[in-house]
Amino acid sequence: SQAKETLVYANYVSEIYTTSQGDIWFMDEVEKRSNGEIVFERYFSSSLLNGPDLYPGLSRGAADVVAGVPSAYNRNDYPLSNVTLPFITNDSDAVTGAFTELFYTNDALRKEYESRNARVLYARGYSVNTIYSRLPITKAEDYNGLKIRAVLSIADTVKALGATPVSVPYPEALEGMARGVVDAMTASPFDSSVKGGLAEASKYGSDGGRMGVYAINIVAINLDRWNKLSPEHQKILTDVAEEMIVHYNKMRQDEVRQNALQLCEIAAKEGAVKIHLFDDAEAAKVRDLAYDKIKDGWIEWASKTANVDASKVLDDYIALIRKHEATSTYKNGWEIYQEECGS
C-alpha cells in the first residue's frame, strides 16, 4: 500500500450550501476509493482562508484543495475565468460541463491556472441570477434611477440599464433593503436568494430580464501537490471528479426544484413577495441594452490582462455551452417556478 496523503481542503462558505455538499461527497468518495490512503482535512466557513484568500493561498500551499470563486475575488490573476458573462445561458449544467471541458481543451485557460500553481478539478455553474426589490421590476426601463446592490459583471449590467450599482456588503444590504438603504439586490443566484432569506425579506422578485448564470464556483488543487501524488491517486481524483459532476448536477436540480417550490410557498402568503418575470420583448430589450457593452468591456480587459485573444476564449466557451445545452435536461429555477405556480 502507498503512503498516506493528507489534503487540506478549504472553503469560505458553510457545509449547508449545495456546492459544499458536492465537495463533501467528492472527498468522502475519494477517501473511500483510496482505502483511506487519501484523507482530507476539511475547513469550511472561512475557518482557514477567507474568500479572497483561497486562490492566492492555494498557489502558496496554504491549502491543497480549495473551493472558491477566483473570477470574483482574484480577477486580475484569473481574467479568463470570468468568461461566464450574463445573458449567455440559463443552464447551470451546461456551464458546469462547458467550463470544465474548456479547462482541458483551451491552452490559455489552463495556463491561467498553471501559472498560479493550480489545477482545476471541477467547476460548477451557479444557478440563474435574480433581482429582489422594493419596487416591481418587470421592464427594462424600471431599472432607471434605482440604487442596486450588485457586484462584478452584474454591476456593469445594471449600470448599462441606468441604475446605480452600490457595493454595500451583502448582509448589511439585506437588512437595509427593507428600509431603503438600497432599492434592490441582485447578483444573487436563484437558490441562495430563497435559502438566504432574500426572497422572504423582499416585496418584489424577478428574473431581471433573464441575465442567466453569471458566475462559477471552481474546485482546484495545488499543482505541486498534484504532481507529487502517485498516478493511481491522481486517477482516483480525476475519476471521482468526473462522477462528481454527474452526481452534483442531479443534486443541484433537486435543490433548485425544492427552492422553486419553496418560493411558491413564500409568495403564496398574504402580503409576501410578488414575483414578476420579464416577457420576451422586455428581456430582449434588457439584453440589447447591456450585453454588447459588458461583452466588449470584458474582452478588452481580459485580453489586456491575460495577454491573449479573449474573444476567442469566449467564442470557444459559448460553443461548448451550446454543445452541453443540447444534451442537458436542466431546468432553471424561474422555469420551474413558472410551471409550478406561475400565473
Binding site: V8, L49, P56, G57, R60, G61, A62, P169, E172
Partner: peptide, 23 residues
C-alpha cells in the same frame, strides 16, 4: 502544524485579511 510555505502565507496574510472589513 503546517509546513513553512503554507504557514508563511497564512500568517503573512492574516493581519490584512482579518481586519480589512468595512463593517
Amino acid at each position: 502544524m503546517r509546513p513553512w510555505g503554507a504557514a508563511e502565507y497564512l500568517i503573512a496574510n492574516f493581519p490584512y485579511s482579518f481586519t480589512a472589513h468595512f463593517s
